[in-house]
Amino acid sequence: MLADISTTHATTAADFELIQAFNEGQEAAFTRLVQKYQQHVFNLIFHHSGPRVEVEDLAQEVFLKVYTHLKNFKGQASFRTWLYRITLNVCIDHGRKRKLRRMLSLEGLSEWGKAKLSLRHSTSASPHSDAEKREWQDRLQQALAQLPEEFRQPLVLRDMEDLDYDEIAAITGAPLGTVKSRIFRGRRHLRELLAPYWEKGS
C-alpha cells in the first residue's frame, strides 16, 4: 500500500551523497536514485494522470530530465521535492498535449463520457470481496481523475505520497494556506463524487 512505500523515504543527506557521486562521474549512483524513487514516480504519474496514460513512458521522460539536469541541482530544495516537481510538470505537459489531441479528434470526449457513466451506474457498495475491492479502487481512480487538477495534485501528494503541507507548497508553488484549502476541497469533492457508495455502508 502507498502508506508503506512512503516509509522508504531516506534522509535527504543520502540523496545528496548519491547526487555528488553522480556528478563526480559514478553513473551507478544515478541508477540507485532511480531505484529508490521509481515507485513514487510511477504512483504519482498514475494517480495524477489517470489510467489512460503510458505511465512507463512518462516515468522515463521524468528520469531523462533528471539525468540531464542533475548537474544543475543546487540542493535548495530536497531531491524528492525537485523530482516530484519535474514529475508533475511532465504530467501537466502530457495532459495539455492529450487534451489538444482529444479536441482535434473528439475521440476522447466519448471515452470521458463513458467513464463518468460507469462511475454513476456501478452498483457495488462497500468492498468486501477482492473483486469488490478492485471495483472500488477503479471507481476511486476514476473519481480522482475527475477532480480539477488544482485539487488533485495536493491531494495525491498528501494522501498517497504522505508529504507534509510545506513540501506540497514547495512542489506546487502554492502558498501554505492555499494548499490547506485545496486539500480540504479535494477531499470534499471526492467524497461527493463517491457519495452513493459511502451511503451504502462503506
Binding site: 500500500m1 515507485q39 479502487q137 476511486l140 498528501r158 494522501d159 504522505d162
Partner: peptide, 18 residues
C-alpha cells in the same frame, strides 16, 4: 468522513513498476 476519504486513497495499490 474526511478520514474515510484519506484512508481509501492510502489503500490504493501501488502502480506496478515494470
Amino acid at each position: 468522513e474526511l478520514q474515510q476519504v484519506s484512508l481509501r486513497l492510502r489503500q490504493q495499490p501501488a502502480y506496478p513498476v515494470p
